[in-house]
């Protein structure tokens, strides 16, 4: 019965419920016409690789925004985790240990955000603004303001493959991104904690009354955001061959844009990983397109802002009319 009704839906109604997909298609078609270097295999791989970092961060942020929160600290977590991992790599530590410790560090920092927000009852915006500033400062102290190179040990070569390597002709970060999407989708759709994420974002009080420890859900959600920021930190550091003290500055904005363009409500409770994936692709293609078209960097911000507003407005109109 249910499957029948799904089949019965025509492609028009599917598209009208996925406005971001339309924006994405329009963008791709328009760019293919305007620039013949756009629709090539190598450029597609470049876009995907560039998108991967924002996409990984945005996936974590989707959880935070789904519970009606926000995580501004993602860029700073990325930077400090990147720096710590670079130092560990340079010291010759085992590659798996480096990755594990870096991810745990990110997870821990995210969970601290979650603790401030749940037990400390801070507004998510304020709490993560605080940790964003704090961790950025801490990164500068830790790196003494200078890049930390990942080279100088046996581990370096393997580590640098994470961001620069290919498997079957496709960049490794693209695999990481897809893997993160699949796991996040599975958690949100099929796991208990995913159900609680939506419930909490839609009605916190009713969720608490249903016998759910909402504090634990919040700590988990911010933990995921920190964990994925650390993962993005590893990709960035590996790709550049060094940890920059200012790495990840402003990344929270592109990530929020991707989540919101993907149709996730800032009020919480509504949104999907599929949407965020589309949102991240839109941002990625836009960045790529503006470069290919040699738009001056002054105008790039203007163009990006306009596209973000159009995408969100389209989505908003559709929702109020329903």
């Amino acid at each position: 019965m249910k499957k029948l009704s799904l089949k019965g839906r025509d492609w028009k109604s599917i598209l009208s419920q996925n406005k971001p997909v339309i924006v994405l298609l329009i963008l791709i078609v328009a760019m293919s016409i305007m620039n013949d270097r756009f629709l090539t295999w190598s450029n597609a791989l470049t876009v995907l690789r560039q998108t991967s970092i924002n996409a990984v961060i945005a996936t974590g942020l989707t959880f935070a925004i789904l519970i009606g929160g926000i995580d501004l600290s993602v860029g700073s977590v990325l930077a400090i985790c990147g720096a710590v991992s670079a130092k560990m790599v340079a010291s010759g530590m085992n590659i798996f240990l480096v990755i594990l410790l870096t991810l745990m560090l990110g997870l821990g920092m995210g969970m601290v955000n979650g603790l401030f927000i749940s037990k400390g009852r801070l507004q998510p915006f304020i709490a993560t603004l605080g940790t964003m500033t704090l961790l950025r400062g801490f990164t500068l102290v830790y790196t003494q303001g200078k890049p930390i190179s990942i080279f100088g040990s046996e581990t370096s070569a393997v580590y640098s493959k994470i961001g620069t390597g290919y498997f079957l002709g496709i960049p490794i970060p693209v695999y990481i991104m897809l893997f993160v999407f699949v796991i996040a989708y599975y958690i949100l759709r099929h796991m208990k904690i995913g159900r609680y994420t939506y419930a909490l974002g839609s009605n916190e009080e009713a969720t608490m009354y249903s016998g759910i420890k909402t504090d634990n859900v919040k700590i988990f959600v911010y933990g995921i955001s920190g964990f994925l920021s650390a993962l993005a930190g590893i990709i960035v550091t590996s790709r550049l061959g060094s940890a920059q003290p200012t790495a990840g500055s402003g990344y929270e904005l592109d990530a929020i844009a991707a989540v919101v363009i993907g149709g996730t409500s800032m009020a919480g409770g509504i949104g999907t990983i599929f949407g965020t994936a589309i949102g991240a692709l839109i941002i990625g293609i836009l960045n790529n397109a503006l470069n290919l078209l040699q738009v001056s960097s002054y105008y790039q911000g203007v163009a990006k802002g306009i596209v973000i507003l159009i995408a969100v407005l389209l989505d908003r109109k559709q929702r109020t009319s329903r």
Binding site: R195, S202, A206, T207, Y209, G211, I212
Partner: peptide, 17 residues
């Protein structure tokens, strides 16, 4: 405000607790 979750469907509400 604290009985049901309006943004979830019937199944998700029934099994929430």
């Amino acid at each position: 405000s604290n009985g049901i979750v309006l943004g979830l469907n019937i199944v998700e509400n029934v099994t929430l607790a």
